[in-house]
Nucleic acid binder design. Sequence first.
DNA 1: TATTGTTATACTCTATAACTATA
DNA 2: TATAGTTATAGAGTATAACAATA
Lengths: 147, 147
Amino acid sequence: MDRDGLAADVVRRMAHLTASVRHRQGTAFAELGLTPAAARALHELDPDHPLPARDLADRLSCDRSNVTALVDRLEQAGLVERRTDPADRRQKTLVVTGDGRAVRDRVAEVMSDSRLLAGLTDEELGTLRDLVWKVSDGGLPEPCGPE
Amino acid sequence: MDRDGLAADVVRRMAHLTASVRHRQGTAFAELGLTPAAARALHELDPDHPLPARDLADRLSCDRSNVTALVDRLEQAGLVERRTDPADRRQKTLVVTGDGRAVRDRVAEVMSDSRLLAGLTDEELGTLRDLVWKVSDGGLPEPCGPE
DNA sequence: TATTGTTATACTCTATAACTATA
DNA sequence: TATAGTTATAGAGTATAACAATA
């Protein structure tokens, strides 16, 4: 196989692997009563450093308008509270509740569950790490987000 | 960083990379007048071996009901034709048209465009291929699809 | 005038269930 | 009765545009 074919195959398999990961995470999140997007949102909220909704949208690389529905659900589930910022009453600070902390910890566990790579030796894993880093550092001008 | 943290980081970065690839592909498909799902559907259709819609759904790992809308758009764009199978009039065979062939070739090019990995040497690329293969072969019971 | 959060709206993707025409 | 394709419907995710409150 030529270089292009090889590279294309690697990209295809990586896409397959991450699709598999997303699928497993989705079912795990559902067991927590969260949709994948809501889980990601909760995960981005640091319980010790509350954020305005606008910053959460930035972290999720999505429009602010989407955050409203996401936070609606998290708030309804008692995991997050909206508090109007006294310093700037336009902003609403998103505060993770006690329950929210616990669920967020579980979300973090699910997200860092890497049974996917269990078949690799420590050395192979290190090598893979180096290669993936090299690609993700130098690979693209804009790794994500709108153009 | 411990092994779990390392593995989680690799998974996270791979997800980031494939999200980036999907994003670039999405914009390329849009320039062809296709949504990502429609592009994938067209890509799965072999111009030399027409398929019934049911088989396309199988290849896309999605419900048959979705194929209808997908093929609607492809047909409207003149890329695909529905032909009732004379041998079993329930089935509709999906035939890629002349225009469809050309667009499908472009879709295939976009899908195998791997500028993402341009920064790797041939040797590194080979190593990455081996590692990704090892993971994707032994990694998971069900690589995709419903449970 | 500019910004924050919200609402209204629309489109894509996907799934389930019911319908039709065939077999 | 079983299957192929369709339709209707629903929900998640994401985007744009307009709006109210605030700066």
